[in-house]
């Protein structure tokens, strides 16, 4: 490997490691939704920490409202469609 390639390689590694350390340490006290669940790799995730409760969604069955198939621009959710219909009347 050329010296330039080695220097670039080490720079990328060091910069991303520094970012990782900075983000990790700055977020360690943050009490947000991301702290309750583990989203890393692994087949069986550990249980959420007991101190924080999961915020439930106000939408009862949001799976049916959003289009999740392939396509770059998704159609609007059905709830919005209903709202528009109501407002035009």
């Amino acid at each position: 490997m050329k010296k330039k390639v080695v220097a670039l390689f080490l720079t990328v590694v060091f910069v991303l490691t520094a970012f990782s350390m900075y983000s990790m340490v700055s977020k360690v006290q943050a009490d947000n939704a991301a702290s309750i669940q583990c989203t890393t790799q692994g087949d069986f995730m550990p249980a959420p920490f007991e101190e924080v409760t999961v915020e439930k969604s106000s939408i009862s069955n949001n799976q049916d409202m959003f289009c999740s198939i392939q396509g770059d621009i998704m159609p609007p959710p059905f709830e919005d469609d209903e709202d528009t219909t109501t407002s035009t009347k």
Partner: peptide, 28 residues
């Protein structure tokens, strides 16, 4: 160098009772 944040994240996760460190490190 790459092993340092991984080990630190696991320690912080355990001591602070939050998944933020492991989630963040895993992302990077």
């Amino acid at each position: 160098v790459l092993a340092i944040p991984v080990i630190l994240a696991a320690i912080l996760c355990h001591t602070n009772k939050t998944y933020n460190p492991v989630n963040t490190t895993d992302f990077y």
